[in-house]
Amino acid sequence: MTRPRIDTPDKTPLLSLLLGYGPALVILVAGALALADVPWALTFGMLWSSAILIFLAGVVRGLSFFTEGGPRLSQVAVMGVRFGCGLLALILPPVLAAPVLAVGYLSSLVYDPFAARSGAAPRYFVKLRPPQIGIALVGLVLLFVAAGGT
Rank of each mutant, 00 (worst) to 15 (best):
P99R: 04
Q132S: 09
F55I: 06
D112E: 15
V126W: 02
A146Q: 06
I27M: 15
I6H: 13
V95C: 02
R123Y: 04
T150G: 14
K11S: 13
R5E: 08
S16C: 06
A102W: 00
G104L: 07
P13M: 11
V138S: 04
R61I: 13
Y124D: 03
Y111L: 02
Y124S: 01
P39I: 07
P9A: 11
L92V: 10
Y124V: 05
P9Y: 01
L96H: 09
G104T: 07
M46C: 09
F55H: 10
L35S: 06
A115V: 08
P39E: 12
A136M: 03
P113F: 07
T12S: 08
Q132V: 11
G70A: 08
S74E: 14
V76M: 08
M46F: 03
L101S: 04
P71K: 01
L92S: 11
V95A: 08
A34L: 03
A121D: 01
Y21S: 09
V78P: 00
V103G: 02
R72K: 14
L140K: 10
L92I: 11
F44M: 11
A97C: 05
A98E: 03
A120V: 00
P71A: 15
A98S: 12
I133Y: 07
A57S: 15
L15P: 00
L142Y: 07
V60E: 12
I91L: 12
V38T: 14
L53T: 04
M79W: 14
A36L: 15
R3A: 14
A24Y: 09
S16P: 00
A89Q: 07
S16R: 13
G70I: 09
I52C: 01
P4R: 00
V126Y: 06
T43H: 09
R82H: 06
G119V: 07
L142S: 01
S74V: 13
G69L: 01
S74W: 09
T8Y: 09
V141T: 11
L17I: 14
A98K: 01
L35G: 14
L106K: 00
A34E: 05
S107P: 01
E68N: 10
G139C: 03
Y124Q: 04
